[in-house]
Design a protein around this nucleic acid. Sequence first.
DNA 1: GCATATCTGGACCGATCGGTACAGACGTCG
DNA 2: CGACGTCTGTACCGATCGGTCCAGATATGC
Lengths: 196, 196
Amino acid sequence: MTAPSTDRGRSSRGRIVDAACELFYDRGVAATGLSEVTAASQTGKGQLYHYFRDKPDLVLAVVHAQVDRTLQLQQGILEQMTDAQDLRVWAEDAVRAHNAGRPARCPLGALVTEVADHDDALRQALDGGFARWRSALAVGIARLQRQGTARGDCDPHDLAEILLCAYEGGVLMSEVRGTTRPLQLALDAALLAVLV
Amino acid sequence: MTAPSTDRGRSSRGRIVDAACELFYDRGVAATGLSEVTAASQTGKGQLYHYFRDKPDLVLAVVHAQVDRTLQLQQGILEQMTDAQDLRVWAEDAVRAHNAGRPARCPLGALVTEVADHDDALRQALDGGFARWRSALAVGIARLQRQGTARGDCDPHDLAEILLCAYEGGVLMSEVRGTTRPLQLALDAALLAVLV
DNA sequence: GCATATCTGGACCGATCGGTACAGACGTCG
DNA sequence: CGACGTCTGTACCGATCGGTCCAGATATGC
């Protein structure tokens, strides 16, 4: 609701969002009580409702935070993507990251099914986040197209969308099966369709 | 908990599961109260706790019901799949179905992110459902392989997995964007990787 | 050092949650 | 028709939910 204007306030708000990111991610939004958020962030209801109008408003802040985190993690490898091998490394990194975390999911994808349908503001926020991610990917893919290692007859944004769909679907199926195999297969197939 | 032994009992249990399927699907499991389920199914708490141990037990029944529904819808087209064009029709049908329903999601996929992580029995039930679906697809794909229209160097189950991942990821991204475009792109790309 | 605004923590509220208890309706035997 | 197991409906419970309120701590400007 009210933006913090002091360092202490910014710190409190930040701790709340961080704790909410973590709790929402591995327990789910609906299953996480606001008291758990305040307990985990060493704050109270007073602070929470000082900085956020209500729970959906907090969820919105979490969405933006997760988008920023994801983009920040991706932009490094995406910006300096110059050949097809770099894209394969990107896919391998995705599989490796999924292997490491537990339970390994996409912070954005996990939020979609939980909030995207009954709250349009949250859906739009997630849509915007994916759009930024897709654009970052498309920039690199366009580079590959210019050097002839990616399919030239498609909009790079469409090729990026294919990769993101394969990633999200692969992560979802890998979560159900308990193996990274589906993610591996899905990304390999998507690369097959995107490259050359 | 106790299986019904009369027609009236089976009818009540059936109405409860049907109502729960619908409510869980378009409001979410956590967001649906048991009183809403009893109200929508014209029953009471007495019946609900006569046939189900607790809420997770009801969710388990819903998972099985949704698996059966999905398989039943799919088996028709899957069983008589004889050439590559039939697989393309399968993909087109998926896009068309997604276009019709609102909000169009996969009944199984929607349940994954909501219940798969914190309840292993539910995760296994969903895993089993996807396995049956994948096998049904694989049977048709193996047929295509024998006639040389599908990639022969892969296990048909892996090719089926690729299609399911593309479908689930495409549905998820389509839900966020509000268009069937991502699903269309993802399935086309998967077909490209699976056929010939 | 006083006034003012920001920030903090927790007690508290009504509503709703999942779950229980129980009294009675129903159907099917002898 | 009476007895018995199945099935039904609802009143009710403690716990927890999102959200309010407010008194006091903390900082900043004059």
